[in-house]
Amino acid sequence: MADNELTMKLDGKDVPFTQGETIFDIAQRNDVFIPTLCFDPRLKPFGSCRMCAVEVKGIKNPVASCTTAATAGMEVNTVTEVLEKHRKTLLEMVVSENRELEVSPLRGVASQELSILVEKYGAKTGRFKGAQSGHSRLDDKNPFILRDYDLCISCYRCVRVCAEQEGDYAISVMNRGFHTQITTEFNLELRSSACTFCGQCVQTCPTGALADKKALRHA
């Protein structure tokens, strides 16, 4: 076993891994914290938030640890001054598009993820003020899921969980760039879409943009 055991260096420490494991997986297994907003262990690695970028010796730009498979002998640094500065900048940019950070935990199990990270990085500085993205669909009269997209940060975890875990493909991404918006077919209400109201999207949302309307009655 020792003969063909693969190892890499994670923050200066030799750690074993199995073929195909990503840097992020290995870090989690070794209790090394790497921040992320778009990661959900049930979903395929997506690599959009870039918060999990790490430095790899020999590669010029940081790589997203969630989408990069480890290779034998790879030397990875997960925390450097430069990485932490970029992560803070990025979080400040995310905060600049999100209208509120303090949301009720009753909105969903992952709903505090963004605010916890913002707190950790001291990113609530009011920098990068500008236009808001996303529009809440408070007109959606379904009794289960609140679609408060004013709080959306376009990580697409909801879209991916709907496709990858539920196989419903009820929601998707419309437009592009800053104008992306979570949508259903023809931007209809959820009741007119393929949605089965399973609630998976609510439970993966890291900002509380999606919330359980019934739970919120107790908020």
């Binding site: 990025l90 940019m93 598009e97 760039g177």
Partner: peptide, 13 residues
Amino acid sequence: CGKCFPCRLGTQR
């Protein structure tokens, strides 16, 4: 395209 955060937010700001 709107996928990665730095580009989606940065080009706008």
